[in-house]
Simulated assay, not measured.
Amino acid sequence: MKPSSLHNVYLRFKPLLLMVLAQLSYTFLYFITEASFNHGMNPHVYVTYRHIVAGIAMFPFAYFLERKIRPKLTLALFLEIFVLSLVGVTLTLNMYFASLRYTSPTFVASVVNTVAAVTFVIAVVLRLETLDLRNARGMAKVLGTLVSLAGVTIMTVYKGPAARNPGHPPIHIQRNNIIQEQWLKGSFLTIASSITWSAMYIMQAITLKRYPAQLSLTTWMCFLGAAQSAVFTVIVARKPADWRIGLNIDLWSTIYGVSWRIRQDLYCD
């Protein structure tokens, strides 16, 4: 095959390749984060640190790339972004990462795939999405939503036998009987985070119409979400040791989470 033909094939399948790479990086995020939590890192401290660093890293991009399109920030708009951060960062991610302590990366990844379906349901209820059952596209949306929600329900109420790995994995995740018994608690946390995550997408779409600067909005959400999460963490985790982080998997998981968030925002932009 000629080089020009290979280049054409690459351009044709580039969106699909990027989607696959994004999902692979997302999958690795689950495993390295859970390994960090099992190492002793507090999930709420992780969310706080991750968004502090992400906000600092995003600030230069937001400031220079959007200085001509960034509208004036009014008090009403700031309060709207504050609520968006509360829903999209503080509530969603604290429940989301806390659920990893009680379930598994496989379960969390499966449930998160229902965010699109839940977003569709909320949009239909709020009349932001038109549902037409008379054409194939409308029927496909409904069928996909039902299948997705049914799969999550089955995974929540039924947990099969553990699969043993005969080798030695690079990231070792320890579990004990207490955590296994709290599977249902983790399932509810994951589902609740998916619902708030879906609500955040709808709220963000509305906010972007009044504040059409995506990187700046993301930076504000990172800083506000970090502040909100820090307040919550101080309330629920009063041990000063929880805030310490060393040159170990806790630091690497935080850096990877920040880099993944930045790649996601820059790519979406």
Results as ranks from 00 to 15, higher is better:
M155C: 08
A162G: 04
T156S: 06
L189E: 00
V147M: 15
H168C: 06
Y158T: 07
I179Q: 03
A162R: 12
G160W: 08
N176Q: 04
L184E: 04
R164I: 12
E181M: 04
T153Q: 15
T145H: 10
V152R: 06
N177E: 15
T145W: 03
G186K: 05
V157D: 01
I179L: 02
T153D: 15
G151N: 07
N177L: 14
Y158R: 09
G167W: 09
P169H: 06
I154L: 15
T145L: 09
S187C: 14
V152Y: 11
F188D: 06
S187P: 00
V152W: 02
L189H: 00
P169S: 01
A163C: 03
P166W: 11
Q182P: 00
R164T: 13
Q182T: 10
V152H: 09
L146K: 07
P170T: 13
M155A: 13
A163D: 02
T156H: 04
E181S: 05
I178L: 04
V152G: 02
L146Y: 03
T153L: 15
V147P: 09
S148T: 05
W183V: 02
R175T: 14
G160C: 07
G186W: 00
S148K: 01
H168G: 02
G160K: 01
S187A: 15
A162L: 13
S187G: 10
N177M: 10
I179A: 10
T145Y: 03
I173A: 12
N176F: 09
N176M: 05
I171G: 11
A162Q: 10
P170S: 04
V147N: 05
S187H: 04
A163Y: 00
I178K: 03
N176V: 06
Q180P: 00
S148M: 05
T156P: 00
Q174I: 01
Y158W: 14
T145D: 06
A163N: 01
I173Q: 06
I179D: 09
I178Y: 03
T153G: 14
L146V: 15
G167P: 00
A162M: 04
I154A: 11
K185F: 10
L146I: 15
Q174S: 14
I179N: 01
Q174A: 12
E181L: 08
K185Y: 11
P169F: 01
A150L: 13
E181H: 08
E181G: 12
Q182E: 05
W183C: 03
I178G: 00
N176R: 03
N177V: 06
T156G: 01
